[in-house]
Simulated scan of single mutants.
Amino acid sequence: MSFDKPAVVIDNGSHFMKAGFACDNHPVSMFRTLVARPRNLVGRYGRAGHYEVYIGDEAVVHNDDMAVTPPVVNGKIVQWDNMERIWHHIFYRELKAAPEDRAVLLCLSPGAPIEEKIKCCQVFFEALNVPALCMQSTSVLALYGSGFTTGITIDLGWDSTDINPAYEGGLIHYAQMSTNYAGEQICKFYRESLASRGIDLGCDANEIIDAVMMNEMNISIDCSMPRRPVRKYAVDPRTKQKTDVTDETFMVSEMFFQPDLVMGYDTGYMPLHKAFLMASQKCDMDIRDELNNAVVLCGGLSMIPGLAERFRVELTDLVEKPVTVLTSDESYVVSWMGGATFAGIPEAQRMWVTRQQFQEYGARVVKNRMMF
């Protein structure tokens, strides 16, 4: 199957959408996975007259006066109307490309159920009228984006942190692990810690904390070492007021590796390095060395300075054999880059579903080709 124009690659993230063309080496568009509607429409059905709907970063701006909701929660699509609006927005506002002219490669969560994949086909073929669609796991595509087909991906996202081993492009489902904490839990800890000091960041708390995590956090290789006398601040974008968050930033950094110590109780969260070890040991011993030779950190939180180095140090005490941890300056889009690579592989064309095939065979062709 060959396409006249480069395919569109969409990474359906819980926190950020990433979209672009398979011929590029970086997404054309990145925006928050959010949709804002008037509050008086929430829970109502039927005709409501004309009203504005804001998507992505524009939705964040209207957080005060409108109901802002994410259509993707824990990697699963929960609001299909909003999700369709976002996909429509990607084609006509972000990429300025007609969907009927472009095949689409959609990056989905490794845990996406088959019902979700079938529904995606219905939306893309019947509402957007795309000629062909392929869906792949973000974890497998992260390996492709790093130049491997066998390895273990550690996806540090907004609402889940998942460890997913894959062998020759196929997920090893029984070895998948989750730490049960991610960016959302970290933001909650930030807010609660500041609240205990009588500090309220207001309705922009999540955006302020996001900025702190991306710009101020730095994970120490050894938490017992004396901290450098550097202060960390959260800055309100509206008032420019600074709040000292030095202690919170240090404690959150340790949450990846010592969650119970940071929270002060038995959280049920699993330290990152121990979750990796358990996922690795679940795999067959004959392929374990090959898997450990390509451990790919991906997702937004993987960009925190010092995280990869600390992860290597913690693994040294647990794993007897060497483990190769791969990072890059663009690990937050490595799954998208893997999708762009996958879309151009001739051998992968048999995994695409055309609109005509879906019309003829329906859910059966989706189950045959997209059971990742």
Rank of each mutant, 00 (worst) to 15 (best):
S302D: 02
A205I: 09
D11R: 00
D317N: 12
R227F: 09
R191D: 13
F124C: 05
V72N: 03
W352P: 11
P113I: 07
D289F: 03
R37S: 15
E248G: 08
A22K: 01
G13W: 08
K282E: 10
I118L: 02
M285I: 15
L133Q: 05
S335H: 02
N12Q: 06
Q281E: 15
E84A: 08
A142G: 03
I55S: 00
D247T: 07
G268W: 01
Q281D: 14
P70A: 08
L143Y: 01
A205R: 08
F148H: 11
C298D: 04
P346Y: 00
T249G: 04
K367I: 14
Y181A: 07
A275V: 11
N129C: 11
A308E: 09
T327I: 12
D101P: 08
A112V: 12
W158I: 06
F256N: 10
F257N: 10
N368E: 15
S280L: 08
M351P: 08
F91Y: 11
P99Y: 01
N82R: 13
E126G: 08
K96N: 15
W87E: 04
G268K: 00
P322M: 04
D65L: 07
A97E: 14
G43P: 11
V53H: 03
G264W: 01
A279F: 02
E254Q: 14
T327E: 15
E320C: 12
A308M: 04
A363R: 06
A308T: 01
L307N: 01
N164L: 05
T161R: 05
V235R: 12
P237E: 08
G157M: 02
R238E: 12
V61E: 15
I209P: 08
V334R: 11
Y361Q: 15
A363W: 08
D260M: 01
T246M: 04
Y265Q: 13
E192I: 05
Q79H: 11
K188Y: 11
H89A: 02
W352D: 11
Y92C: 09
K76W: 05
E347L: 02
D266E: 14
T161K: 04
V365K: 06
T149P: 05
M66I: 06
F372A: 00
D266W: 06
A211C: 09
A205H: 11
R93E: 15
R310P: 12
T69C: 12
W80T: 02
Q281W: 09
M135G: 01
D81L: 10
E58H: 13
N206Q: 13
G20Q: 03
I55D: 01
E58C: 06
